[in-house]
Amino acid sequence: MQFSTPVFYIVAALVIIPAVLMVSLKNLIYSAMAMIACFSGVAAVFVTLNAELLAASQLLIYVGAISILILFAIMLTRRRSGAVGIFFHRQSWAALPAAAALAVVLGLVLGSARFNAGSSPKNPATANLSRLLFNQYAFPFELASLVLLAAIVGAVLLARRERRP
């Protein structure tokens, strides 16, 4: 499926605006909501890139799992006293120009003619991608699952309450 450029701009807006919102909002829950919106936007981007499996995985993993995990974490670490606290660093005034500079640089580089590419989209269909995953990349696939296992064990261990009699 070919997508025209205006569609891209809409999708891009769907990604960037929630991202900026997320970073700048003081309330953590609102930030989390924005994050979910951003992730969804990224899924849309994947769709425009003919990577449907990726889009689905993104929604499942990021929106469905990671965002919930983050929300849990936010809930669990509410400060009892209710004090507002400081959200931004004293040095945050330096971070913004730095990040802006990075954006400018990246934009200049990545937007330059170096990255002229062909017009024919090449992402394979889901079936072919799956075949790729289970044949050529089987080993990393298994390894990834091992990493996930380790992460699970580690997370459980770290977050456990110390309750020894």
Binding site: H89, Q91, A98, V105, L108, V109
Partner: peptide, 20 residues
Amino acid sequence: VQGYLFAMFLGLLALMIVYI
């Protein structure tokens, strides 16, 4: 940590600019 990160970030930025 964010201080260190910031330093790294700046370094990276500088390197990129030089490279460009």
